[in-house]
Write a protein that binds this DNA or RNA. Structure first.
Ligand SMILES: [Mn+2]
Ligand SMILES: [Mn+2]
Ligand SMILES: [Mn+2]
Ligand SMILES: [Mn+2]
Lengths: 147, 147
DNA sequence: ACAGAAATGTAGCCGTGTCTACATTGAATG
DNA sequence: CATTCAATGTAGACACGGCTACATTTCTGT
């Protein structure tokens, strides 16, 4: 690196980096959705059971079990057989971060005229691809618009 | 359906639908990125070779080959051994649709103050989760802002 | 306390997307 | 024309995320 030949094409080389970053973001999406949603369940019901997690995600219970196994493997959750699922500190942190992003994305979509129903649906996918700098820009724009 | 019990919780049932739609959108993301990018290559270089496709996507050439196989299977591309890859009518249509969405998303992000570099990166993931109604809202908002 | 129902666990299948390693083909160079 | 190298094909491994089917455990109502 730092070896950028003068006049090199190199125009396209950045595309690979974009796609790569999008793939990385996507690989985190499932973890983000599960942590946020498990946190929701704990807040609302006092616990997060596999059945509820599965229903909430729209998947079967073995799929939810596998996802929780991955959460545990990545240090985001803890669970013991036949007991509810709990989030670690890291899991709670991820849940809160993703909840904030979800809300801000929905707010921004609504603010530019997207119907709330569509905003809520699209935000579920968009949120995972909003970088910190973009999130800050959204927040700044929203507060400037309101204030 | 049409059997909505009065006072039912049912609040959470919509979440599953959101997640499900996000998963569907994601399953199309790879096809969209490849069609758009192959179309770009054909425009710029006159042909889309596996090596170029792979470099552009930031993957190895067997990965690109498999992706092209899926494009063919889904009727979006055609290719014969040791020849370049071509898009079908459906593939070209998808490429153009996705290119429009990409551009509109970047424009909107920039318009609300996201730095162009970040806008370009984030748009690569966001574009796949922008529904038609949201796209229209973006376009309306942008043209209203400009006009 | 017990039987039945509900929840959870587990095994194993499939499709996808990534990779490495190796085989084959095509193109360029002398 | 022969050699060599780049491009392409192909095989096979792995991780992931979805599913069905079946086993086990826990909860619940009588
Ligand atoms: Mn989401
Ligand atoms: Mn969300
Ligand atoms: Mn993309
Ligand atoms: Mn794009």
């Amino acid at each position: 690196m730092s070896d950028i030949p003068i006049d090199a094409p190199e125009l396209e080389d950045t595309a690979a980096e974009r796609f790569s970053q999008a793939r990385t973001a996507q690989s985190l999406a499932l973890l983000e959705d599960y942590t946020e949603m498990i946190d929701d369940l704990i807040r609302e019901l006092g616990e997060a059971r596999i059945t509820d997690i599965a229903r909430q995600m729209g998947v079967t219970h073995p799929t939810a079990t596998k996802a929780v196994a991955r959460l545990k493997r990545e240090g985001l959750a803890s669970a013991r057989p036949y007991r509810g699922v709990f989030l670690t500190e890291a899991g709670i942190a991820m849940a809160e971060r993703v909840r904030l992003r979800h809300r801000v994305v929905v707010d921004l979509l609504c603010a530019v005229g997207v119907p709330p129903e569509a905003a809520e649906i699209d935000a579920e996918g968009i949120e995972h691809h909003v970088s910190d700098v973009t999130l800050q820009a959204f927040e700044a724009w929203l507060s400037q618009k309101a204030g």
